[in-house]
């Protein structure tokens, strides 16, 4: 599990970008500039970063309501993301989608999804395309522990397994589905054991350690790309924030939240091992942090300059011609 300096710093930068993006969106939401709902990915950055590091632009992902991290890790433009949150014409979805529907098809991101478990069969279908057309593209479906109890999970994993589709199912177990703790939603402790019921490898990783995610994803992606079929990857994780911005978190205690946040921070974790392994110094990491903040500032400034989303045009907005 050795990782070189360049990879370590890339992973660190992606994670830091996601964290800063979430911090800035939270701030913009507080300033009433963002409408609707946003779900922060803070705390879970290692999963998107570690997995997407193995993906090409022409590989596909499906994402979730908590999708900013996946979108960034897949290479999205931060300005267009902010512009979408701000309801601008220059946003990824021209203000029609918002946080829960950001897609970037130019980078293979088939969209965040407001339906829990909605993306799982879609990624399966993308993998079907790759297999059918004989390409070596792969598809990754990110979804939560909550989604693993949807029917789409069962149907999709079975289809992918019988057809040996090039797809990786990444279950982000952040301990909660909205307010429901995983302990009350699963009678098994390890969600990855479900994989054996479908006939595919099930791998559980520490979602705090981006190296572990990176390593597990390398294998799963290689397996998919070489036609050996799907993998279920379950990453143990924790979301630092509430389910959505403004969640009163009545289902958690302050102690729990503070304890986990301290213990479970993939970015602090990465800083520690990067320095300990002498891959880079604290100053290098601080410099990355600073440059990310600058990037975020520029992205927000660009987004705020964009015109408001244009009026809905029918039928063109709804139907392709």
């Amino acid at each position: 599990m050795t990782i070189d300096r360049a990879t370590a710093l890339d992973l660190y930068r992606v994670m830091r970008t996601i964290r800063s993006f979430e911090e800035r969106s939270t701030q913009l939401f507080g300033e009433n500039k963002i409408w609707g709902t946003i779900h922060s990915y803070a705390g879970e950055e290692a999963i998107a970063a570690g997995v997407c590091a193995h993906l090409r632009d022409d590989d596909w992902i499906t994402s979730t309501h908590r999708g900013h991290g996946h979108c960034i890790a897949k290479g999205a433009d931060l300005g267009k993301m902010f512009a979408e949150l701000l309801g601008r014409e220059t946003g990824y979805c021209r203000g029609r989608g918002g946080s829960m529907h950001i897609a970037d098809t130019s980078k293979g991101n088939l969209g965040a999804n407001g339906i829990v478990g909605g993306g799982i069969p879609i990624a399966t279908g993308a993998a079907l395309t790759a297999q059918q057309l004989g390409t070596d593209q792969v598809a990754v479906s990110f979804f939560g522990d909550g989604a693993a109890n949807q029917g789409t999970f069962h149907e999709s994993l079975n289809l992918a397994a019988i057809w040996k589709l090039p797809v990786i199912y990444v279950c982000e177990n952040n301990q909660y589905a909205e307010s429901l703790p995983v302990k009350r939603a699963f009678a098994v402790e390890n969600i990855a054991v479900r994989a054996s019921g479908y006939g595919m490898p099930g791998v559980r990783v520490d979602g705090r350690d981006v190296r572990a995610v990176h390593e597990a994803a390398r294998e799963a992606v290689a397996r998919a790309r070489s036609g050996k079929g799907p993998t279920l990857l379950v990453a143990d994780s924790y979301r630092h924030e509430g389910h959505y911005y403004g969640d009163p978190r009545k289902y958690q205690t302050k102690d729990e939240i503070e304890g986990w946040r301290k213990r479970f921070d993939p970015i602090a974790d990465a800083r520690a091992w990067i320095v300990a392994d002498r891959l880079a110094g604290v100053a290098d990491l601080d410099a990355i942090d600073l440059s990310v903040v600058g990037e975020i500032d520029r992205a927000v400034a660009w987004a705020e300059e964009g015109p408001p989303a244009s009026p809905i045009k029918l039928p063109d907005d709804v139907y392709a011609t």
Partner: peptide, 13 residues
Amino acid sequence: IGIVGAAVGAALT
């Protein structure tokens, strides 16, 4: 739902 969803994903790609 698995079939229809797979078709959606296939159509998107």
